[in-house]
């Protein structure tokens, strides 16, 4: 289908206009992070660009520690989710046993319980386990995930049942079949779920706020909140530098995986 030039122009104008408006706050933050405080206060366009804000942010705050913690937490959650969801999805697709359908409904039911509604006992559990200020306290509660299980289940279902039968005749057990056949075949979905898991874990806010009391395992999101509350006296350049550092890893991940993520989300949600 070809489009008339007039129509094309209209679409490009709309696209460019929308992109500009939508991306303006982010661009503003990035530019501000390189501006001197003088320029920010007077509201002029940047006369000189400087890295001072970044240097300041790293000097005054244990940002490296926060970033490291966020990486550890996000990767742990991502791996935990991949392992648990793929195991569960395998059981739902390839194994037949009594109570399977019931358990499937249990998984659906979990989607109706918002984490926020059960956050008080969760906090007490973590406290009683001695998991406050620990990586396991920040990660383990998020390993099991119904959405991820459904997403992988959709993908596993496309693996022909004959493949499993053949492997059974060859004497291959379920766990080996899961490891050597199912996981490699479902690589794309696993990557999609991994990207999604990393993004959401990196951006988590309420739970790390509750489950950390000091800098040892505090994540970068809470670090940014502290930076903002302590630097409120007009040091906006430093705050924006902190914010830019926080969003760089996820923006890169999103730019690389956007197409895949979009397809995966649509599949998990709608099929």
């Amino acid at each position: 289908m070809t489009m008339s030039t007039g129509k094309k122009v209209v679409f490009y104008v709309l696209l460019i206009l929308s992109a500009t408006i939508l991306f303006a706050p982010t661009i503003m933050a990035i530019v501000m992070s390189f501006m001197t405080n003088q320029d920010i206060l007077t509201g002029s366009f940047p006369k000189t660009l400087t890295l001072d804000n970044y240097v300041n942010a790293f000097e005054r705050f244990p940002l490296f520690q926060y970033l490291f913690n966020s990486f550890v937490v996000s990767i742990m959650i991502m791996l935990g989710q991949l392992i648990l969801c793929s195991l569960a999805a395998y059981a739902f697709v390839f194994l037949e046993f009594k109570g399977r359908d019931l358990l499937f409904y249990v998984f659906i039911a979990t989607m109706m319980v918002p984490f926020e509604a059960s956050i008080i006992p969760n906090f007490h559990i973590i406290r009683d386990l001695g998991w406050i200020d620990s990586y396991q306290g920040l990660t383990v509660p998020f390993f099991a995930m119904a959405f991820g299980t459904f997403l992988l289940r959709q993908n596993f279902k496309m693996i022909p049942k004959e493949l499993r039968e053949a492997s059974q005749i060859a004497g291959m057990g379920d766990f080996r079949f899961y490891l050597t056949v199912v996981l490699p075949v479902a690589k794309t979905s696993l990557v999609t779920l991994g990207v999604y898991g990393f993004l959401t874990s990196w951006n988590m806010y309420l739970w790390p706020l509750l489950a950390t009391t000091n800098d040892s395992v505090r994540t970068v999101q809470i670090g940014l909140k502290q930076l903002q509350t302590q630097e409120q006296l007009n040091e906006w350049g430093v705050i924006m530098a902190g914010a830019v550092i926080v969003i760089i890893p996820t923006l890169i991940l999103l730019f690389l995986g956007q197409k895949r993520l979009q397809r995966g989300l649509a599949e998990g949600a709608l099929k």
Binding site: P25, T26, A29, L224, F255
Partner: peptide, 19 residues
């Protein structure tokens, strides 16, 4: 444009709120 439009998904609530 798709990347730009989806970009806010990669921006955490803390960063967006600061902006």
């Amino acid at each position: 444009f798709r990347t730009i439009f989806s970009s806010s998904m990669g921006i955490s609530v803390a960063a967006a709120s600061v902006f």
